[in-house]
Design a protein around this nucleic acid. Sequence first.
DNA 1: TTTTCCTACGAAAACGTTTTCGACAAAGCT
DNA 2: AGCTTTGTCGAAAACGTTTTCGTAGGAAAA
Lengths: 348, 348
Amino acid sequence: MSRTTLQQIALSLNLSVTTVSKALRSYPDVSEKTIQKVKEAAKLLNYKPNTFAVNLRTQESKTIGLVIPEIVHQFFSSVVKGVIEEAEKNGYVVIVLQTSQDFETEKKRIEFLIDKQVDGILIAIADQTVDCFHLYEVQSMDLPVVMFDKISKSVSCSKVIIDDIKAGYEATKHLIDCGCKNIAHFRGPLTSQNSIDRYLGYKKALEESGLTFDESNVYHCSKMNFDEGREQAQKLLQHNRGVDGIFINTDMVAVGAMTEFKAQGIKIPEEISIVGFGNWFLSSVITPSLTTIDQPSYTMGKIAFNTLLSELTKRKKNEHVEHETVILPTEIIERESTSSRKKFDISL
Amino acid sequence: MSRTTLQQIALSLNLSVTTVSKALRSYPDVSEKTIQKVKEAAKLLNYKPNTFAVNLRTQESKTIGLVIPEIVHQFFSSVVKGVIEEAEKNGYVVIVLQTSQDFETEKKRIEFLIDKQVDGILIAIADQTVDCFHLYEVQSMDLPVVMFDKISKSVSCSKVIIDDIKAGYEATKHLIDCGCKNIAHFRGPLTSQNSIDRYLGYKKALEESGLTFDESNVYHCSKMNFDEGREQAQKLLQHNRGVDGIFINTDMVAVGAMTEFKAQGIKIPEEISIVGFGNWFLSSVITPSLTTIDQPSYTMGKIAFNTLLSELTKRKKNEHVEHETVILPTEIIERESTSSRKKFDISL
DNA sequence: TTTTCCTACGAAAACGTTTTCGACAAAGCT
DNA sequence: AGCTTTGTCGAAAACGTTTTCGTAGGAAAA
């Protein structure tokens, strides 16, 4: 009932294990006739190479690690889907691990992957993560690392990201185009590059448009969940600064904020316009539907895997690998939470 | 720069590889003194056992396969989270694969896992899947299989599920309690055990309450997505049978249906009450919020892993393993899409 | 003829463990 | 003293591949 081995094929054909092995991989130094014979026998005996032995011999596992903050999350689960599909096409296996946005956990997960001897690592770092020694360690073990979405500029490796500054700029610009004069921003953690860049984009849009940028209009979110959206919305209302538009770092927080505004009887978009980020499915079905920035999660996963794969193959050929940074396009999706002035102009 | 091996530790201590190996695992036939010496040296040299060699020698990989229809899905991604966390605690790695609800793909994925020599498989089968020869094959290779959520009664293995009949019954009963007289059902695929059971629960509740069960009040969904919800809602409105309540197989479909009803100006719950299934986050933030059945996805993942693990350990000890079926509790979450008569009674 | 050059195959080492089976003391027992 | 027991250790096989390096024989070239 155990697996057929090269040994058994060899025995059944009166050949050596060597020849059988080479025949199966069509080595040039084995005759066409025996190649056929061996391949037939292999199929007949339902031969499957023993992965453990192959791994040991070749010192590679055809396995990569994928580290993300949280899997129950539309963005990341889409990334995972993209990575898994692309990996499967190329005979690779992926080990998915979560950090729960915790730095210590992230270090443990990386250590685990090193122990398990993966061929490479794909990672979106935790918001908490500032120093990246654990990633330097990976690189020092000669393992390629590719970062996506949540990156650290301090690590020298290939990256797959979006242009958060541009996206933040366009989100804010859209609010301005809608006629908003006093635009707030719900930003994410100070240590997250995403949050920093979206914030910078927000600021840039305000300054370019001659609107005054006011730091007290910037509200800080750390956990980036629904409840925090409600809380920050409450805080904003208490301040009562006449805010008429908000650019919010993530759709989930935006939905929380909208829920609070609705509960307090504040009309969206008449009294306050809102732009979210991520284009989660959620944002299209709530009332009013949420204007947001679409971010290609699925393709980001695919591309992240493929850049890692290309580094892996280059390494095997001893070719020089140089790191590349791929920037994926974003797009603003206009919905009901912002009333576009353009529509208004057309109807005139 | 390469990993330290037992060889190197042995050399540095003037011991044999055998003794070093045994010392690290605290064999009784090696003296306490050398055990200490070896362990110190191992720590000093940062020794990590070579997984490939261990796998080859022990013929196990400490890896399990997890097969699901789709990962970008709140229910399944929560299951994945539970499985991964529990696996990590026990030193196991999990390979997540998707079938996209396609039978042929499912067979391929299973084959892939067998090739990769996982120690066991966790699976929620595709709705399409009717015959389970591919799972019998897994079992014939002496690999344990545990099914969860989407199971087939024809396979003899451990299972982790909910009581869909009971859940469907309670969902429908709730509509009846709310005063609905003419209750429709949006059901899932005919081949899915979940759908069958929820349908049976629906039917049972109607019959027990003296309401007439009418097959033409049952609408069939195959893809179970948002658009299908809208379509079936349209169809229901065209039929115009005076339906005043619907029990819908899945929250996502329910949200689609609600969107259509709202678009057509039909009031929920005044004109039509709706109960969904799954308690996705989505259902709590739409307007009106959706009454639904809560289903423990995360713990289902944890329990599924642990039953697989216990089968694995029993097998290693050559103990007899008998299959168990764990049934997890569900709970109805009452929200705005059904106006509870109880509330009404209280206010009188 | 001898020499060179292919063609087709195999022996053996290596990858790094784990485990079986001895071996050889020293210590305990008649 | 002879015998068995106990406590430590190691040699070697095994897991199933892949790859290096031969080698034998025949064909082609000299």
